[in-house]
Design a protein around this nucleic acid. Structure first.
Lengths: 220, 220
DNA sequence: GATATACTGGACGCTGAAGTCTAGAAATCA
DNA sequence: TGATTTCTAGACTTCAGCGTCCAGTATATC
């Protein structure tokens, strides 16, 4: 029992760069092609690595995919957490936040992977949950907090911050997700995202600005 | 050249009921499981039919899937076309229309099939397009026309009917599609749809009612 | 009744991809 | 240098699912 810490066994150590190359290759392939279309040989070739090396790092295809899904999730989290801009006035701040969110969520990695999540993860519902909570699920609380803050300053009239956040997020997304989801219309440009966010924010503010509620009591 | 009309060849004719059973079985299976998980044996068994009978009606698996996708599209069209209610006041009319749309689009058939469209249809982009235009793509023009009509009556202030229709549709959908898309949260209830549509319509009207535009010129 | 076609059920060939095994080269530790 | 482990390249096994074939039976037209 002397090897409780397998810190450095004798012999050639595993090359972390190869592991990284495998994950990178898998990410590139899994986000472009459906799960069953991606073969382990393709991944190995793309990573400039032998197939056996792939299997020495990952037990099987599902484990590899899981690792990649988690890796994308982590990148989503990191990107979304750094998306707030505290020092701007409300209107500009909302637009900047929205552009940040959508740029991440509509990017090829997230869209590609989320497309095939239901296909590949019928077995592991927990991974789908994790993926969702790393991305879209994390956006709403952030947004709700931002809106609550604005409401407490008297800038907005918010009944339920969580629902209002859903409204704003939905207005930002617009019809993009549906079209992307059906595989139509190639990658979305930064300009499309910006104009969509700008419009959505304007509509949202028209509905939630304080003066609206003095004028339109019939739609409460 | 006497058989230009192959109206009734000699011998036993094909049983249309069996064809229908195959399509029904395929619809049930394809909307619940991803394309590659559904085997021809499963379909045959579910339809109480021999596998050879399946192949006598459909050349291969893709042809069968295509037939089913088109069939679902046709049902979507039929359901969506009959969703307008001309005789109601605007607010109730919008809500009734929204509930009609969402009940169709969030139903298990459409959601299940649209999930796997990108997976199964990498080859035939035209089928994905057809599917989209039968469902979500058809909703927006209908909605835009409805909003234009209301605007011409002075009920709404609409800058671009198509964009406004996207806004309203997005508000109706809310976060449902994202959650459903990730395979979370089982089938949506009629109550959830109704309350979501009601809220979305209220927010929309607050943003687009004529009086808003007199009060909030800064968000044009 | 004769004939032609549809349907059944099972066996079968084929393919493609997952995953295993092996021999030898390469890299690292002692 | 020697021991030990990784990495490679490719051959190999396994297996599931598509699509086919066939012998027998059922059901239609002529």
């Amino acid at each position: 029992m002397s090897c409780l810490l397998p810190r450095s066994r004798a012999g050639r150590p595993k090359d972390p760069a190869k592991r990284g190359a495998i994950v990178a290759a898998g990410m590139q392939l899994f986000t472009k092609h459906p799960f069953d279309m991606v073969t382990m040989e393709m991944i190995a070739t793309q990573a400039s690595v032998s197939k056996m090396t792939v299997y020495s790092h990952f037990a099987d295809k599902e484990t590899l995919f899981e690792t990649i899904a988690i890796s994308v999730s982590d990148r989503m989290i990191a990107a979304i957490v750094n998306t707030d801009h505290h020092d701007m006035p409300l209107y500009e701040r909302l637009i900047a936040t929205g552009i940040g969110f959508l740029t991440i969520l509509m990017g090829p990695d997230v869209m590609g992977l989320s497309q095939m999540l239901p296909t590949a993860l019928r077995s592991s519902h927990s991974l789908a949950l994790r993926f969702y909570e790393a991305g879209p699920g994390r956006v709403k609380p952030v947004l709700a907090a931002l809106l609550s803050e604005a409401a407490s300053k008297g800038l907005l009239h918010i009944d339920d911050a969580h629902l209002a956040a859903e409204d704003l997020f939905a207005l930002w997304e617009g019809g993009m997700r549906a079209e992307l989801g059906c595989g139509l219309s190639g990658p979305i440009t930064a300009e499309q995202i910006a104009s969509r966010v700008k419009r959505g924010t304007q509509v949202f503010l028209r509905a939630y600005a304080v003066s609206v509620h003095r004028e339109n009591p019939q739609f409460q």
